[in-house]
């Protein structure tokens, strides 16, 4: 066999190996939590809050954490969206292409994206101390907002950058202002991408433990107030796996299964919605 053919075989094998590694790790993660968690998963776990002694193997469920995570990440995503949309529309419609200001804003967002979530948690904690809050839904939401903000901004930014400049010109040349162009045309065109960005941020916000570790606290009751503590799924998993009782650890895996299922459902919805919208809008 000549050298070029060997090369071809070698690299083909390497590529296949890498692909299988990725697939394999996904499948083994899913299998682990299914095998370990599914037997412990029950309807009562999904619809009950922890009863006394739940963490020692007695009755109850994780509804507090499921609802807590949903409320917290939905809130954080919503606040992040309120900041991201004006920011990205400003970068892409009001500033010129090679604006230095836009360059630095993007740079800062990229840096923020790379900061580990525990740092956001710690920052949220200092904010909390500064304002005199206690560990609460609000504090957890603020920390999570900071965490998902760069992700959302940069993904919406990338979507807006892809929109052809001519579309903006078409709207402007009909006598539209930049604001009208941004809201009625550019935003509409970007909607599928914006939706994907929202769900990306939602999944990320829901799954992160470090940002809420110091800020959201933990409670056995359902989320009841912005200023009260709130339970979250990642921390529920953490606490259950940390007990010495095998049956509680199994519930930890079951909780992980629930969290994975929620994130999976969100991303499937994201894909369906974005396909539907792109189908409607054409290219």
């Amino acid at each position: 066999m000549d050298k070029r053919k060997t090369e071809e075989y070698f690299f083909k094998a390497l590529m296949l190996f890498s692909t299988l590694t990725v697939l394999g790790s996904l499948i083994s993660i899913l299998l682990t939590i299914i095998v370990k968690g599914f037997p412990a998963l029950s309807w009562s776990m999904l619809v009950q809050t922890p009863k006394g002694g739940y963490y020692m193997g007695k009755e109850g469920g994780i509804l507090n954490a499921i609802l807590g995570s949903l409320v917290l990440s939905l809130g954080a995503t919503f606040i992040a969206l309120l900041i991201s949309l004006p920011l990205t529309l400003y970068l892409n419609i009001y500033l010129k292409r090679n604006s230095r200001f836009a360059f630095w804003v993007r740079f800062v967002l990229d840096v923020l994206w790379g900061i580990p979530s525990i740092v956001y948690g710690a920052f949220g904690f200092t904010l909390m101390i500064f304002f005199g809050w206690r560990a609460s839904l609000l504090a957890g939401m603020v920390a999570t907002t900071l965490l998902v903000l760069p992700i959302m901004c940069r993904s919406i930014d990338e979507v807006l950058k892809m929109i052809p400049h001519e579309l903006q010109e078409a709207s402007l040349s009909l006598g539209a202002t930049r604001l009208e162009t941004a809201c009625k045309v550019i935003f509409k065109q970007a909607l599928p991408g914006v939706l994907t960005a929202i769900l990306l941020a939602l999944g990320r916000g829901m799954g992160d433990a470090a940002a809420v570790l110091f800020t959201a606290g933990f409670t056995d009751s359902l989320p009841y107030s912005l200023t009260g503590p709130v339970a979250t799924l990642p921390l529920a998993i953490f606490y259950q796996l940390g007990t010495p009782f095998p049956e509680v650890q199994e519930r930890g895996y079951a909780s992980a299964l629930v969290l994975t299922a929620i994130v999976l459902i969100i991303s499937i919805i994201a894909r369906m919605l974005s396909r539907r919208f792109t189908g409607d809008l054409g290219d």
Binding site: L167, E169, A170, L174, G175, K184, V185, K188
Partner: peptide, 26 residues
């Protein structure tokens, strides 16, 4: 000024909405 000057660009660039809305937009 731009309302006074209609522009037809090189590649047609329809707005992301219905045929009706495209004409009604302006």
């Amino acid at each position: 000024l731009r309302k006074k000057m209609g522009l037809l660009s090189q590649r047609p660039c329809v707005l992301p909405m219905s045929i009706y809305e495209n004409v009604a937009y302006g």
